[in-house]
Amino acid sequence: MIPKPLITYIETAIIPRYKEFDKAHNLSHVRTVIEESLALARQHPEADERLAYVIAAYHDTGLCRDRTTHHLVSGEILMADSTLRQWFSDTEILLMKEAVEDHRASTDHEPRSIYGKIVAEADRIIDPDITLRRTVQYGLKQNPAADKEWHYQRFHQHLMAKYAPGGYLKLWFPEGKNAEQLKKLQAIIADEGRLRQVFNRIFEEEK
């Protein structure tokens, strides 16, 4: 059970920060990650949904500084938030900090706890259209002046590196819905004609 005052604090002091971030990390994103984290926590009796909730809420707050180290900065923000000590012990706060640090898809180590796996999995909501659109959106945000072909090459390279078989994306719950969705996404990536068609449509809608 998540205490109501904790929910109020997160809803008023933490979640609004996502209004300042890009389309791929906005309010809709954090709410989705919270929802998915809680669903996963409920499937694993050893997980405390209070911790899963807070971790999900803070996981991308470090984007206020930069993208490269945002997972580490997010952990620092959580750790430094003295308000959380009303509800959590030092041990729990450290556990949450580590989970936030471990959520990034490109991290080179397995999450250190069930909580890291939960937020990492929740953050990888794989819906082919959403994933492809977010990839285009990120490229446009980073380099809006580049031409369409540059954006396609970046889009293709990123998808191959992250989502194609052998890519760096790791799923921690192979029985989960992400695994099924990843197969659908991989089928699109493998068909370059179809992939370019999808890119062209999204690019025209987003540019």
Rank of each mutant, 00 (worst) to 15 (best):
E20A: 15
T83P: 12
A145Q: 12
T8Y: 11
T107N: 14
P5A: 05
H25P: 01
E180S: 11
F203R: 13
K170A: 09
M160I: 15
E149Y: 09
V119I: 13
Y58S: 00
P174V: 02
T12H: 14
F203N: 13
I125A: 15
E11I: 02
K148W: 05
Y168C: 11
R194V: 13
N26D: 15
L182C: 03
K117D: 03
N200Q: 11
R133N: 08
I14H: 04
I126K: 04
D108I: 09
D102S: 05
R133E: 07
I7P: 01
V33G: 07
T131G: 10
I189N: 04
Y163L: 15
T83C: 14
R104W: 10
Y115H: 01
A24S: 14
I130R: 15
R67V: 13
R201H: 14
R134D: 09
I126R: 07
K19Y: 10
E204G: 13
A47C: 12
A52W: 02
D108Q: 10
A80Q: 09
L140H: 02
E35K: 15
I125E: 15
L51S: 09
D108W: 10
F173E: 01
V198W: 13
M79R: 13
F21A: 01
H103I: 02
D60A: 00
I202P: 07
D66V: 08
L94W: 11
A190F: 06
R201Y: 12
H44E: 12
K117T: 04
A56E: 05
S74V: 01
A41Q: 08
W172V: 00
A105W: 02
Q142D: 07
E36A: 11
Q157M: 09
E192Y: 08
L185F: 02
I55V: 15
I77C: 08
A80C: 07
Y152K: 01
G62P: 03
I202L: 15
T32W: 09
D48S: 04
L182S: 02
P5N: 09
F199L: 10
E110S: 03
Y152H: 06
D129W: 06
E20R: 15
A13K: 15
E76M: 09
Q157F: 11
A99F: 07
E149A: 13
E35W: 08
M1A: 13
V136T: 05
S89Y: 08
A190C: 01
A99T: 03
E98I: 09
T68H: 14
Y138A: 07
S37C: 02
A41D: 00
I14V: 14
Q186R: 04
Q137P: 01
R201E: 15
T135R: 07
I15R: 00
L72H: 14
L94D: 15
A164M: 11
A41W: 08
K183N: 01
R134Y: 11
I34E: 01
K19M: 13
A122L: 04
L169S: 11
F155L: 03
I114S: 08
K23R: 12
A41G: 02
A13E: 14
L94Y: 14
R65C: 10
H158C: 11
Q197V: 01
A56C: 00
H109T: 09
E180A: 08
R194Y: 11
E46F: 05
Q181A: 14
A52T: 05
S106H: 03
E98A: 10
L132G: 02
H25A: 07
Y58E: 01
P45L: 10
S113T: 05
